[in-house]
Design a protein around this nucleic acid. Sequence first.
DNA 1: TATGAATGAGGATTCATTCAT
DNA 2: CATGAATGAATCCTCATTCAT
Lengths: 206, 206, 206, 206
Amino acid sequence: MNARSPEALVRDTGRRNEAVILNAALEAFGTRGFNGASMRDVAKGAGTSLSNLYNYFPSKSKLLAAVLRHANDELQHRVLRAVEEAGDDAPSQLREAVRAHVGFVVDHQVATLVATNEVRYLEPDDRTALVSHRDATQATFERIIDQGAADGAFRTPYARDAARAILSAVAAIASWYRRDGALSRGQLAEQYARYALALLEGPLPR
Amino acid sequence: MNARSPEALVRDTGRRNEAVILNAALEAFGTRGFNGASMRDVAKGAGTSLSNLYNYFPSKSKLLAAVLRHANDELQHRVLRAVEEAGDDAPSQLREAVRAHVGFVVDHQVATLVATNEVRYLEPDDRTALVSHRDATQATFERIIDQGAADGAFRTPYARDAARAILSAVAAIASWYRRDGALSRGQLAEQYARYALALLEGPLPR
Amino acid sequence: MNARSPEALVRDTGRRNEAVILNAALEAFGTRGFNGASMRDVAKGAGTSLSNLYNYFPSKSKLLAAVLRHANDELQHRVLRAVEEAGDDAPSQLREAVRAHVGFVVDHQVATLVATNEVRYLEPDDRTALVSHRDATQATFERIIDQGAADGAFRTPYARDAARAILSAVAAIASWYRRDGALSRGQLAEQYARYALALLEGPLPR
Amino acid sequence: MNARSPEALVRDTGRRNEAVILNAALEAFGTRGFNGASMRDVAKGAGTSLSNLYNYFPSKSKLLAAVLRHANDELQHRVLRAVEEAGDDAPSQLREAVRAHVGFVVDHQVATLVATNEVRYLEPDDRTALVSHRDATQATFERIIDQGAADGAFRTPYARDAARAILSAVAAIASWYRRDGALSRGQLAEQYARYALALLEGPLPR
DNA sequence: TATGAATGAGGATTCATTCAT
DNA sequence: CATGAATGAATCCTCATTCAT
């Protein structure tokens, strides 16, 4: 029971092998989808026995919930910190928020894909909880956009749905980006930050 | 064996009940995902017996392939026609292409979601075929963008990945749009057309 | 609907495509066993539709029965004719009977295998009928052996089970003989005729 | 989960219920053939659940392979021991080998039938392995016959295929012998030993 | 005759989960 | 914590057969 993928989302949790299981589950769900992956796959990936999984998580569904919670926490953490460290004006904040988001997507492509595609398979309660958690991240963007619209920095007449459009495009990066491709992490972040500002009809760097 | 969902993607195929099965499959895959939906679900939805499905499609996977082919055909058809009917300049063409795409997504939300999320479960050959078909649609957007970039209409320094960003945002509409919400089909199309032009740093209507 | 394997057991039956179906069934049952072969396999082999099979034979089981009947008829015919054409003494008769039997096995390996291995899957009535038909062939050998034992030509103390032993060995040829091997049809017949006479402790050619 | 047929081939294997399953499989395959028997039949015979079978054998085919391996092992063991304990001359060795083989066939009629009729349903690799194992047993007979032919004890001009003929006849016993019939196990063995020596044109007891 | 569509039963196998150890 | 054995429900798919045409 020991494995550390290059993209390991979860580092440590205090409980002996929990992180190993969570990362194995992430990989399994990412590779074959929630319904396509079996608990046996997860166990094999974690190097433990099938039944031992149930000492850590009471069901497959709760395992997914835990994976998604970790992913969301990490994303939210990165975005919030980026905003804090940015200037006071909406354009700067948005720019940094987008860059941080792109960074997360690139660093955790699989987690992003799983978070996008597999939330629907959570049990209702867990899904509700998770969605509201995710909405909090989205709300950060919406708040910035509202402020920018109010003070005239963003001149789009459709500020309302802009956050959704931007975040969708950013999340979709996970489905095509290749680490060994032509675009570096930094370039990609830069590029999408500009897309976002332009879409909002905000001020662009020359 | 008779059903016509409000969103029926497939109208008729010459073979007795093929369309009914395809629409039932679309609904089943949309509701529960490819791996979460069973052939029994599809049969029930189509009002026929489980085994009769196999007189029409040799496997669940081929059934998915057929569904996705129909969806892609319809989307491509709409986009191409819209471009043909638009003016000669890149901004007009892009505008109409986006509007047509948004129209498809709104008319066929489920098909859009299935096309986005379940392609990965195709057998390799079918996936390859489908992806190249889908890329053809994307290529239409890229061609327009290239032209607009060449003649100075689109001033973004990042024309290259812009099509992907725009199409991702448009496809994602399927995951949140509600027919009974505040936004009409037409308003939404208008809005996303402007997002696209703005993102490309092109000319905007006042 | 047209096929003629090199080993075709059935030539013609008066009914349009019956022979084609019977030969296809023989091949299917021979290749995959009665339970392993499907009516679809038979139809494909016969170049006709699945449902058309039922215009000729009321069930898979009856189809097998028909195949086996044809095989047995041909075998019995060959053996009886060989005995008739042989001399009056038991050793000559046995010799010719064995040669004829070996000839059938070599000409119809698949039919021999099917006759040996798949009889058990007949419905009770058909099986009874077929076994008694087959026993008639065996009885021919037993009659000859009894006669030879009575007149002192065969000196084995165990004449009683000898027919079974001989016929088993002959039938088993079907499971290993290769037409392109070292042994010709005629040599093999000669060889097994001598095995039989020797086993019976009868007179051997020098 | 507990059963001991009178003819149980497998006694114990170290793993909890493996032997029970193997014996149930033997019986099922013997009664209805490999393709005619279902895993449910096997499970029922073994007194366990269908799915538990797969904790022991990964597929129906591998289960058959295991059954056949056990049967072959037992047969080979008996024959080899019999040869070791026989005298040095070929006729004695052949006599004891045949007697041992007949003994196995009578003790394990079902196993013999399954070994003869169902090998073909193994996957290619398993079948190759098994056939070569079976050929090893046949090779024991061939060696003895070669030796006897070389030192003049067996005068048949066809020593080459004699082993096949003899072994076929012996194996076929399984298809007709009845424990409650007129012939005892010992008498049958004696009888077939004499058949074999006579067929080889070797020395017969008076 | 010949066909394509239809069906209910059953095929092997995998599933998430539990339990005794 | 960790395991191997166990289970019932469900999976996709194939089966022999029937029926309308």
